[in-house]
Amino acid sequence: MSYPKDFLLNLYKTMVRIRNFEIMAEKLFLEGELPGFIHLYIGEEAIATGVIADLRKDDFITSTHRGHGHMIAKGANINRMMAELYGRTTGYCKGKGGSMHIADFSIGVLGANGVVGGGLPIAVGAGLGIKMKKTDQVVVAFFGDGASNTGAFHESLNFASIYKLPVIFVVENNKFASTATTKETTSIENISDRAVGYGIPGITIDGNDVITIYETAKEMIKRAREDGGPSLIEAKTYRIKGHFVGDPELYRDKKEVEEFWLNEPIRKFEKKLVEEKMLNETEKRKIWEDAQKEIEEAVTFAKESPVPNNEDALTDLFVNDSGYDY
């Protein structure tokens, strides 16, 4: 790993911040503090972190129902994220979206999405817009293995390919589509093979190795930025937690989870950093403590924020008028 220490520790910090956000979200949900559904990114942190590390602030991403990690990696404000989970007015969506719809267009996050595959056409459109504007921005579409079986996936890859759009498709293959295994729902072993059908590069990589992810993404991002067109990266990982917090997980053996937990991305990266003397115990403790403190402060911020007024439900539909009273 011939990278500066700062760079490597930043990757590590981002992963630790995502992990702590998710641990807190799970705890709060189980305590009955949060309404709605929560889908956790625990064990998949390396993908958002590694890919987004090479994006600029003016680049775009689309995210999924499991989107907290993408938001944090793209530079979202943790306070506003937590406030959104609480449904407060200070949240990213003023309490109208919740966990599954967090977005911050100002930092290029074109939205988490509650529809599997729903973000792909939007990412393609952002790529089309960039192409028309003739800028060198790029778009990353994050989605899961489940989405690779939707029509939206296949339409999007073909569309992006024929117009050579600057879109990097990143499939986070976490071995489950809700309660079904990828194996039983997907026709092939490596989803990246599907790229062949659309005439674009496809590559399968270890989704728990943040450096491999960073390096692969960097190459594909460069390609897209230089008008080389779209690509498909399949990052293989494992969904450590259930589909949602509270999932009874009747579809898998707990032992399997334990096995994969040994290979989880933060521990894996930590080991490398320690081996190469880039991280010592004191530094590690400080990074974890800082992250925990940041998340705790976000919870305080959220809890102290006002709940919306009923009238707030009747705003934000249209720009030019209210849109509800006719």
């Binding site: 775009f60 689309t62 267009f105 074109l110 729903g118 792909l120 056409p121 939007i122 990412a123 393609v124 459109g125 952002a126 790529g127 089309l128 817009g129 960039i130 028309m132 504007k133 921005q137 778009v139 029509g151 939206a152 339409e155 999007s156 073909n158 569309f159 024929i162």
Partner: peptide, 27 residues
């Protein structure tokens, strides 16, 4: 350069209009 034909891919045609609008275009 500003009027073009597309594949028969309705979901991505409509969804891409949304993405293009979000990055400042008027499709």
């Amino acid at each position: 350069e500003r009027i073009f034909d597309t594949p028969i891919s309705e979901e991505v045609i409509y969804g891409s209009a949304l993405g293009a609008a979000l990055v400042g275009m008027r499709p």
